[in-house]
Design a protein around this nucleic acid. Structure first.
Length: 885
DNA sequence: GTTGTCACG
DNA sequence: ACGTACGTGACAACT
């Protein structure tokens, strides 16, 4: 039988874990004040790797101490390294204890590093023949051990994310064979281990030399063939250093280990010991996972919750649920507008019922329960459940708890659409994820006939039931109960009805436009080939880059990490140099319209009603905005005339009706004026001035708005946008083409003229630093863990986010309130709300209601909330969306 | 599955 | 000195 040996580099993983959680160092301490972050991270890695690899034998190797055969050979080896922080070194004994409690052997060998132990045992296993070897480490150097029988997994940013190196992957990634890694290190040396290689030889030269000569030895045998006089001199000069560095980098695969392969068999968790350990470390989630895994035997776990399979005969048992019930409707696919319904689970406390027969939804007692205005329903994803039931002619009522929505409000990051994942996030572990039960990707399959399926549904419903008290309490603690009850749960149903309504799309119109575009496209295509002197795939940035920058020698203004950038801003700068560039720009535009908006939309029109039914994702964005998928109706072209024509295909669903659109004018700047309490900006809005002109007048010191030229207004507008995005002079200069110095001046002038805004930007960042989050008007919260980061980039990004999120998020709050009020205001009319595009709402309106809605809709929108400045709404209508302008 | 590009607010 | 505008989704190419 083949065995699988897992070898773990204990020190490097502990280091990685410690630094991955460095930000949260203070959150990871146990009651006796011991730091536990590295222990925690280490155990997460163990969980993951043990589960994924299912090894038969395991060893964790540790470094024995400072002195090794390498330091004897070269006294500066690993010299100059900062001392291991005490917060980490105090954890090492406990990591060993953990390893032990998990039934794993730990080992160290005086004079040798963990690498050498691993290298030696891997070699022994390979020679024994019947072993497969997996090495887990944080140190990329170990990839030199990669072979047919040995894979090396190197932890990436966290410790649970591992990059798997096979010999093929090494070659692809590094350009050399695994055995040649030491040759490269020999030539370039290693800064972190503090030994030099050859002078002036870095990654690139080393790689080139090794690719050419194979090994250092062979290189020196053919030293005359090295191109470059200086390089050759350095090589000759530093031959001893190269050879020493090569030896230092080489893992010793014949270390005198005193342990043998047969000592390494994996014992599995030592429950008593491990429970005790987790308790001392205060590892709650590991503890509760232990309880679940304890009943690893599947039957046991499912037996943990008793349930009955629902049939026509025992339906009356559901009568017991008079006040409250948890309900989970299972559908096969993401898209609940079209997905088959597979079954449902319902119950409370210890009473659970489940079925794989969706027809039972039609049973009177089930229907009454779901539509009852007095029995509270607890679900996961109210909108999805509502639409699914709506398709069965059941109107879900009185949803009290939506676990998905509450989880999103509590923390917008780490949000998932999976009950199991969200439950785990909130500390309830007795439920699997869909991925665990159904598989993922091509392997995903749902066997509705299996007992595991029924059990899974019950476990999901039970998770909702189990968590709702705690999660509501958390919501209250965040001061978010009103946000949930008055906005989010209500808008869920408003959105559901908009999605169900859908918007009619005229396929003939799209096809007509499609033919025109196709024709145009092939003309441009020919023109491009002509100028390039060859045919190629214009849609491939790689091939296009080759033509433009290598064949036609256009100047390279920007690069991406994989090659030349060919993005619009680059091409626009190059357009005057060569006519082909403008053709490429045109080609891009048309093919975008064709693929995304003509073909893309045609694909998602429902045959039965000629409509598209988008899904609004309510729990995705970090700011509280919605997003729209399948299709995305929030990015239908409008800025160019050619693109805008797409909107002609969006028509009312009844002849003679109108498409009616109302949008908030400058909502984000009005929100800014209001929450910063800046008197000057508020005045501009109260007086009904053109805000960009006023800004121009102020920062350029003009006497009146009449003196503002279009160019000055354009620049002021860019500054206004910049402020909303959390400005920097660099960003502003890049976006407007003015110099950085000038951008800096504009911003300074802006802050002089709008001192309230300046104070706000300072205060909000300060608030974020103190609380690690920011809030909108409606107490929507966004956490900013990077706000105190030592990494400039991360910190600067968090600071801009701190400024932007309350603005963008409060605007999102406002339109959501407007939509809830709107649904009520038009409930007895035929006018239907169809779409939301962040600051605008789109309706279809019968002619005889037009006069009413012209007044009503703007009224509802501008009175959604009381700010310190007025809200302004503009409306347009016409016989297609295009005409509503 | 990731990257580059481009559509929207 | 660092090296940046905020928030999204879909498509084609390429790994």
């Amino acid at each position: 039988m083949t065995k699988k040996l897992l070898l773990i580099d204990g020190n490097s993983i502990a280091f990685k874990a410690f630094y991955a959680l460095y930000q949260s160092l203070d959150r990871f301490t146990n009651t006796s004040g011991l730091h536990t972050s590295a222990i925690y991270g280490f155990n997460r890695m163990l969980d993951k790797v043990l589960k994924e690899e299912q090894p038969t034998d395991v060893l964790v190797a540790f470094d024995a101490g400072k002195v090794t055969f390498r330091t004897k050979m070269y006294s500066d080896y690993k010299g100059g390294r900062a001392k291991t922080p005490s917060e980490l070194s105090e954890q090492f004994p406990f990591i060993r204890e953990l390893v032990n409690a998990r039934g794993i052997k730990a080992y160290e060998l005086p004079n040798y590093e963990a690498d050498d132990i691993i290298g030696t045992l891997a070699k022994q296993a390979e020679q024994a023949g019947n072993y497969e070897v997996v090495i887990v480490t944080g140190d990329r150097d170990l990839t030199q051990l990669t072979s047919d029988k040995t894979t090396v997994q190197v932890s990436k940013k966290g410790v649970t994310e591992l990059e798997k190196y096979t010999p093929e992957h090494v070659e692809k990634k590094l350009g050399v064979e695994p055995s040649q890694i030491i040759e490269i290190k020999g030539l370039k040396g290693d800064n972190s281990d503090n030994y030099p290689g050859v002078e002036k030889v870095g990654d690139k030269t080393a790689l080139k030399l090794v690719q050419q000569f194979g090994t250092i030895a062979n290189l020196y045998d053919h030293i005359d063939e090295v191109s470059g006089k200086k390089l050759k001199e350095h090589l000759i000069q530093d031959q001893d250093k190269a050879e020493r560095a090569r030896t230092l980098a080489t893992i010793n695969r014949d270390a005198p280990v005193t342990i043998s392969l047969s000592d390494l068999s994996y014992q599995g968790d030592q429950l008593e010991q491990l429970t005790d350990f987790y308790e001392r470390m205060n590892f709650k989630s590991f503890l509760s996972n232990l309880a679940v895994d304890d009943s690893d035997d599947e039957k046991n776990q499912f037996a943990a919750i008793k349930y009955e399979t629902l049939t026509a005969d025992n339906l009356s048992a559901l009568k017991q649920f008079q006040d409250e019930v948890s309900f989970h409707l299972e559908m096969a696919d993401e898209n609940y507008h079209t997905s088959p319904i597979l079954g449902f689970a319902i119950g409370q406390g210890n009473q659970w019922f489940v079925t794989n027969n969706p027809d039972l939804l039609q049973a009177d007692i089930v229907k009454q329960l779901l539509t009852s205005p007095t029995i509270k329903k607890n679900v996961f994803d109210a909108k999805r459940t509502y639409v699914g039931l709506y398709r069965q002619s059941i109107i879900l009522q009185n949803v009290d708890f939506d676990m998905l929505l509450v989880s999103y409000l509590l923390n917008t990051t780490n949000n998932s659409n999976d009950v199991g994942t969200v439950a785990h996030l909130h500390g309830f572990n007795n439920v699997k994820t869909d991925e665990e039960v159904y598989g993922k990707g091509a392997k995903r399959s749902i066997d509705t006939q299996s007992p595991a399926f029924l059990a899974h549904l019950v476990h999901k419903a039970k998770a909702i039931d189990a968590l709702h008290d705690n999660m509501f309490a958390d919501l209250d603690q965040h001061n978010q109960t009103k946000l949930y009850r008055d906005i989010e749960i209500k808008i869920a149903f408003v959105l559901a009805n908009m999605e169900i309504s859908g918007i009619k799309v005229d396929p003939t119109k799209l096809e007509e436009m499609g033919s025109k575009f196709t024709e145009r496209l092939s003309e441009i295509e020919q023109a491009i080939y002509q100028q390039a002197g060859e045919t190629f795939n214009i849609g491939s940035p790689k091939q296009l880059g080759k033509i433009l920058f290598e064949k036609l020698h256009l100047p390279v203004l920007k690069k991406t990490k994989t090659g030349y950038s060919t993005s619009v801003d680059v091409l626009e700068k190059l357009a005057p140099d060569a006519p082909i560039v403008q053709d490429v720009l045109d080609y891009r535009q048309i093919s975008k319209l064709l693929s995304t908006y003509i073909d893309g939309l045609l694909k998602v029109i429902h045959q039965d009603d000629s409509k598209v039914h988008t899904r609004y994702l309510q729990t995705l964005t970090q700011t509280g905005r919605l997003s729209s998928v399948d299709p995305n109706l929030q990015n239908i072209p409008v800025r160019t005339e050619e693109g805008r024509l797409i909107r002609e295909a969006f028509v009312p669903s009844h002849p003679g009706w109108q498409i009616f659109s109302s949008d908030y004018s400058q909502i984000e700047l009005r929100v800014l004026a209001s929450i910063t309490n800046d008197q000057n900006m508020q005045e501009a809005f109260r007086e009904g001035e053109d805000i960009h002109a006023t800004t121009a007048r102020r920062i350029f010191g003009l006497a009146s708005n009449d003196e503002v030229t279009p160019e000055l207004r354009r620049q002021a507008k860019a500054v206004n946008f910049g402020i909303v995005y959390g400005i920097s002079d660099y960003g502003l200069s890049k976006n407007t083409g003015i110099s950085r110095k000038q951008a800096h001046q504009f911003i300074q002038r802006y802050f002089e003229e709008y001192p309230g805004v300046k104070k706000y930007t300072e205060d909000i960042v300060e608030f974020a630093r103190n609380h690690q989050y920011v809030e909108t008007i409606a107490h929507r919260r966004r956490y900013l863990p990077d706000i105190n980061s030592r990494n400039f980039n991360l910190r600067a990004f968090a600071e801009r986010t701190a400024m932007n999120t309350p603005i963008q998020g409060s605007a999102a709050d406002i339109i959501k309130i407007a939509m809830i009020n709107m649904a009520d205001a038009i409930k007895d009319m035929r006018t239907t709300m169809l779409l939301q595009v962040h600051d605008e709402l789109i309706f279809e309106v019968p002619d005889d209601e037009l006069a009413t809605v012209k007044e009503l809709i703007p009224k509802v929108m501008d009175s959604a909330i009381k700010l310190n400045v007025p809200l302004k709404v503009e409306s347009h209508w016409g016989k297609t969306w295009y005409d509503a302008k």
